[in-house]
Amino acid sequence: MTTTTAMVLLILGCALVTWLPRIIPFVVVRNIKMPDVVLRWLAYIPVGILSALVIEGLFDTEGEYVAIDWMSMAALIPTLLIAVWTKSLSKTVVAGVVTMAALRYIF
């Protein structure tokens, strides 16, 4: 498996929108000042996005009603505890994967 033109264009698009916010301040910083309210709004974005992505995985939207995906909910708790306890990305990922594999093996 290699890649497709569509995929390369998608990656280039993503590259452009990650590159611009990184370099614009370096190019024009000499005399701009962001409004305080914008800075405060931006400060909530990382926690918001990450929480939303975690929460999205907890819901099952296949049926008529939006339901809780109990398997993901069950795996969330030990994974969250390991994350808080170890503060380590790699340990959390291993713990999450092992928990999910165990849950799928049992049920």
Partner: peptide, 23 residues
Amino acid sequence: KWGMDYALVAMFIALLVLTLGNV
């Protein structure tokens, strides 16, 4: 089968906890 698809969610959980740790 090995739960590898959950690595992504686990990563977000870890990143969330680490980000909250800096709040």
